[in-house]
């Protein structure tokens, strides 16, 4: 009845703005197809599994050209994946997965969403878990045969976890 009343008081063809909705319901398949959010709790991690030992061949094929055979990276845009332990409070900090990253789930998320640089999205979930395991193992965080999957990965304790603090600015006041 309300709708009919509106039609009467407004000019022909006009409805009161804001009564309806412009967005269209998102089909569940659409959400499933593009939702790759991975939370640090592990929510969003897919099925699949891998170990450092199993990741060696994938690394050689898909990662080594840029990140080098020892995961040390190359100059410029290809960061090191290992090293930097104990360097964060020195004048030459080296920020790597091992020395800096606070969550192991971020490694999975980043590889799944962005790597390899020239073919993102081309790795299977098993390959991705294996590469995560390989990088964590190279940093001495897990064993060579420790299996990474959606349950074990969020439980991995990263060495630099707990060293991230909230923004404290404005932290400097001008003297006049």
């Amino acid at each position: 009845m309300l709708l009919r009343f509106s039609l009467v008081v407004l000019a022909a063809g006009a409805l009161a703005f804001g009564q309806g909705r412009i967005g269209r319901p998102a089909p569940e398949e659409k959400i499933k197809a593009i939702n790759i959010t991975t939370m640090s709790t592990g929510a969003g991690l897919p099925e699949g599994k891998g170990t450092a030992a199993g990741g060696k061949s994938v690394y050689k094929e898909k990662c080594e050209t840029c990140h080098n055979e020892k995961l040390e990276g190359r100059t410029g845009q290809y960061p090191a994946l290992v090293g930097g332990k104990g360097s964060l409070n020195t004048s030459k900090p080296v920020r790597t997965v091992g020395s800096y990253w606070p969550y192991a789930t971020t490694v999975f998320d980043y590889i799944r969403r962005s790597m390899p640089y020239d073919q993102p999205g081309s790795l299977s979930n098993d390959e991705t878990y294996a590469l995560v395991a390989l990088i964590l193992n190279a940093n001495g965080i897990i064993g060579e045969n420790d299996e990474m999957n959606k349950d074990s990965l969020p439980k991995v304790k990263m060495p630099n976890a707990g060293n991230f603090v909230p923004d404290a600015r404005p932290d400097v006041k001008a003297k006049r």
């Binding site: 939370m39 640090s40 409070n89 900090p93 800096y100 971020t106 060293n163 923004d167 600015r169």
Partner: peptide, 29 residues
């Protein structure tokens, strides 16, 4: 979401390392 996802660009990068080895995170302004 209820929590931040802790993506690469809010952990490994765009965080500010302090002299004591701690890092400021979510420094948006």
């Amino acid at each position: 979401t209820a929590e931040p996802a802790q993506t690469t660009h809010e952990t490994a990068y765009y965080t500010d390392l302090m002299p004591d080895g701690k890092s400021r995170q979510f420094s948006f302004e």
